[in-house]
Amino acid sequence: MLTAVVRTTGSRVEVDLVAAEEGEAIDPADCEFVETNEAGVEVCLEGPSPVAPELKEFLWGGGAFIVLLIIMRLFLFPRLKAGMDARAEHIRASHEQADAARSSARAEVADYETALAAVQAEANQRIDAARMTLEAERAERLAAANEAIATKRHAAMEQARAARAAVQGDVAAAASDVTARTLELATGTTPDAGRVRSAVEAALVDMEGVRS
């Protein structure tokens, strides 16, 4: 079996033909990439520098990237972005709707409060009016009652005074009579009735002053 050792250094390609014993494989330590060429000869390829760009990887990587870029740019990203924008728009619209609802609710609350205040004011007014009426009526009735009481009391007092005066007159007449008889008995002369009477009355007034 004939083994060809092919070394590529830059653009130069060296081919060494090495006669090997039958069945002897190429030592992998000496040779990185063992390949069998068309003639059935095992060929040892020494790899290029580890940091050299290789054309096949360049093409595969570039092709894959371009394919991804095209799919992304034309199909995936616009759909994703459209969905995101639609949701953002939806959320914004809902937000505005909520704002509008909130402001209308605020306006309604304000309306309700003004109506409430008006009703309350009216109610207060009516209560005040009712209270005033009540007060006036009560004062009127009180006055009438007081007047009636005063009239009755006056009348009673007049009556009492008249009765007292009558009683006092009776007492004075009785006392004058008693005094005049006593004087008549004592002196034998009939005293002047008027003088006796006034003296008795004066004495009665004195007694009343002492008693009181």
Binding site: L55, K56, E57, L59, W60, G61, A64, F65, V67, L68
Partner: peptide
Amino acid sequence: IGFNKISLIVVLAV
């Protein structure tokens, strides 16, 4: 077609 591990990785990435 030169499809090695690197090509596999880039195709998988896509």
